[in-house]
Amino acid sequence: MNQRKTILLTGASGVLGSALLPLLGCHRVIALIHSSHVPAEQVRGDLAAPQLGVDDATYQWLADVVDTVVHCGATTDFGAGAQATAELNTRGTQRVIEFASRADARLLYVSTAFVARTALTRQVAGRAQGEATAVPDHYLDSKRAAEELVRTSGLPYTIARPSVIIGDRETGAIPRFQGLHSIVTALLKGSVPLLPLDPSARADIIPRDVAAQALAALVDLPFDGAEHWLTSGEAAPTASEVVAACHARAETFGIPMPSPRLVDPDMVDRLVRPVFIDPLPPAARRRFDDMLAMTALFDTADPLPCTLSDLAGGPGALTAEQVRLAVDASIDHLVHVKNLSRSRTPEGAAA
């Protein structure tokens, strides 16, 4: 049996933290919360404030009892701006490191697999940003900087890098929809006539519960500087397969989804945007540019690394069929929650 730990968990009310929390039941968990409540022992604080936003007595008490920190707290909003993103994701991580040092604790830091895709952003690639409010570079810069802080902290640490989080594997359930959900919604509604992606580009995703199971396993392993990739890897679907999944589920639900064209991003910049996008109203241009910014991170057929199969006690690597079924479950959940269906609920769909 693994030794019982006292864990300070940040981001416990987030998409991933809320799935991890119930898996840590054999340990004592103290959640650092900002404004929400979670079903656990909790302390109200703020990653953006010195000393984690708690008073001296609380800070010292936490340092006395905590032996492990799991740092899930972050902003994933690509439109938050460089300063706000760095304040929470990078300087917030520095404050967590300072606490872990005071507590002589181990640190599990949750980063993102897309630190491996920095070269694909439109800004780095030298492509026009247009009127996009979504700037992935700010998020990726903050995560890379935070990883370096962790590596050089002198603490026993582990870094986990999940890819895009979708709903739970079986039900598709997720407390808050993510960026990929917005693209799937637009596809189902027929408001995206084209996707700026090569058909073979890989859309790496990981179900929320699978990522949480991997993190729970990491808590019970040595913190020896390992960096784990929580991804679909070779099993990740291509852009054309994601579109085909949307089509299949739309047909099942009676949703008349048009077929979007998958267009090379260079062609979009050279031909499509000047003729079809520039004349649109500002709000429509902004939505299109935000989509360009987000899909750029998927614009390669090369798979992300995946170390799920190396993780003792973890969920194991996903097969392509398991990923396909998880994508279907997430689409079904999205259709139900957003009331997109125009016919009956199909047999086996998440209610």
Rank of each mutant, 00 (worst) to 15 (best):
M1D: 12
Q3E: 15
I7V: 12
S13A: 14
G17D: 04
V29A: 04
I30H: 05
I30P: 03
A31E: 02
L32D: 01
L32F: 03
S35N: 14
P39A: 11
Q42C: 09
D56G: 13
Y59F: 15
Q60T: 11
A63R: 10
V65S: 12
A82M: 09
D104C: 14
A105K: 04
R106V: 00
R106C: 01
S111G: 09
A113C: 14
A125V: 03
R127S: 10
A128D: 13
T133P: 04
H138L: 00
D141A: 14
P156G: 08
I159Y: 05
A160K: 08
G167W: 00
G172I: 01
F177K: 01
F177G: 00
I183E: 08
L187T: 01
V192R: 08
P193M: 02
L194T: 03
L195Y: 01
P199H: 12
S200D: 15
I206K: 02
P207D: 06
R208F: 09
V210L: 06
Q213T: 02
D220L: 05
D220Q: 12
D224L: 11
H228I: 10
W229P: 05
T238W: 10
A239S: 15
E241K: 12
V242T: 02
A245L: 12
C246W: 00
I255F: 10
I255Y: 09
P256R: 05
P258Y: 10
L262T: 10
R270F: 02
L271P: 00
R273E: 11
I277K: 01
L280E: 08
R287N: 12
M291A: 07
F298R: 09
S309K: 07
D310T: 14
G316K: 04
G316F: 03
A317Q: 12
A317E: 14
E321P: 07
V323R: 09
K338L: 15
L340D: 08
S341W: 02
R344T: 11
G348K: 10
